[in-house]
Amino acid sequence: MRLLKELKANQNLVLELERGYYKSGLAGANKIVSDNFKSICYIALSKPASAVMDDLKKEGVDIKKYSFIDCVSKKSRLKKLPKKTTFISSPKALTELAIVVSKKLHDEKYDLVLLDSISSMLVYNNELNVVKFLHFVMIAIKATKAKAIYVIMRNDLGRKGMREIELFADNITWLE
């Protein structure tokens, strides 16, 4: 239960996952947080919120506790809008995402924010902008009582520009 222990001790936690264990690692993390937190904000950058919801249901996770920020789906193309989901115009729109996250943190008082994932962000944005975005969100989290998990693939954390995360994240952890 390393993750839970780390979440008790830290507010902003970077969760490193091996590429081959991404899906199972993420499922494990969701199981832990849904069992221990009441209100969770899931920032979906890897796949649409509807697909994340299906995955969570399959894993037996209580999705009633979740709200979503979907950075992948094009809202206008969806026939049916999923419940409790806010759409961001593009995964490149980091300023829009930062504003939505900080507003939601203020208005909806989440216990936990899960960002899935920094690695997906790096597909669409340069490293410096991603680091600046994460710094902004981590400061916003510090102004609340919420905890946050930022998922990243191990290889991406080793990228030259990403070392700066160590300076402002409370800790970097992995799953046992």
Partner: peptide, 11 residues
């Protein structure tokens, strides 16, 4: 602008 965490301060 960097708001250092405890870990960041020691680095």
């Amino acid at each position: 602008v960097v708001n250092l965490s405890e870990q960041g301060q020691s680095i």
